[in-house]
Design a protein around this nucleic acid. Structure first.
Lengths: 195, 195
DNA sequence: TTTTAACTTGAACAACTGCTCAAAATCAAC
DNA sequence: GTTGATTTTGAGCAGTTGTTCAAGTTAAAA
């Protein structure tokens, strides 16, 4: 054998994710990345193949960080639905200014990337689909526990939740109207429980 | 006096708008633009000052085209609320594949541009705010005509409509699930009329 | 201690970026 | 037809882009 890598791969991906999340794929130059992860071009390219390869890893990193946050909130709150509500409030309101961008990184990517880069587009779409499936499973559990009425359709409600999350986060970015968005989050869950 | 401009300014802005709408601000190079509008760099820069200047005009062009489409649909349908519903269906579903992007150009811009370019960010935010005010005025009319219950709050519903439009258009881009989105549009208006 | 495979480095490349400007072309006014 | 303000042209600039690769460094194995 021989020399061993000096960098922490997960840490490098996290740092790259933060930059990409803030500036987008086109807005982030490889020089920016080199500085952010403190690696020279040769090392980055031997580890990730291309800017696109690193971006793909960053998308997955973002996705699993969000997923972990959701699980954390469910545990804290004790029930699936209140955990989901706390998660959404946390992502949309609490982390608004501390996160690299107030918008969802997957949505930003789907908005920025054209069909001329199918690899990145499909990766983002697949991760968003995965998130929707996670919501659906969660809503099923809520239903089983009586947190949602038996008449509710978890799959349809999961789609609805995705639309609301995407819409609310983006609307907040455009309007800066935090109280209104906070109220709309509450309305959404009111609606959910009455479905 | 002397020579007179050979290009049609409105036409040039429209062509630039189509390109910017498709590829975004960072994704569109000035060479792309030169080709799309069939003008040489000198002419473009003397007419618009900078890439940013042309983009700003493109944003306004997009905004007023959307506004005109809404008015058209209201006239066709006869009432404000049914006109609004037809407008949303048209923008989200019917024009999905024929438009340069299935997403809203203002939303794409707000997602792409960071706070390091305040001019473009504020322009998009202002145009989205203007659209919301237009929705609010429309909903007031609908209320006056009895299309909406007297208990409805037009300003709050206008915010809600913005969130739904943004969410639905973006969700369709990520999921490709046209039937689901079509149903969600109907649900939204059902909800509106019951507000 | 030597070997050797893996990793790191950073100069360099060709292509592309937004933009400028001197020269040429244009056309209303005289 | 000449004038002269205005517009068009496109070569080109200085900086940035994503990426490569030969040379140097490292440390486990022999």
């Amino acid at each position: 054998m021989a020399n061993v890598a000096k960098y922490d791969r997960a840490d490098v991906i996290t740092r790259a994710m933060m930059l990409f999340w803030e500036k987008g794929f086109n807005g982030t130059s490889t020089r920016d990345l080199q500085h952010a992860v403190d690696m020279r071009p040769g090392s980055i390219y031997s580890a990730f193949g291309s800017k696109e390869g690193l971006f793909k890893e960053a998308l997955r990193c973002y996705s699993s960080a969000m997923s972990a946050l959701l699980q954390e909130k469910i545990q804290q709150q004790g029930t699936p639905l209140s955990g989901l509500q706390e998660f959404i409030h946390c992502v949309v309101i609490d982390n608004r200014k501390s996160a690299p961008s107030e918008m969802c990184m997957l949505v930003k990517t789907v908005a920025e990337i054209t069909d001329s880069n199918p690899a990145l587009l499909r990766e983002s779409q697949a991760l968003l689909k995965k998130a929707e499936l996670g919501f659906a499973r969660l809503l099923e559990q809520a239903q089983a526990q009586g947190e949602l009425p038996a008449s509710a359709d978890p799959k349809a409600l999961a789609k609805y939740m995705q639309v609301q999350m995407i819409g609310l986060r983006t609307y907040l970015r455009t309007s800066n109207d935090e109280p209104a968005v906070e109220k709309l989050i509450e309305d959404t869950f009111q609606m959910l429980k009455a479905a």
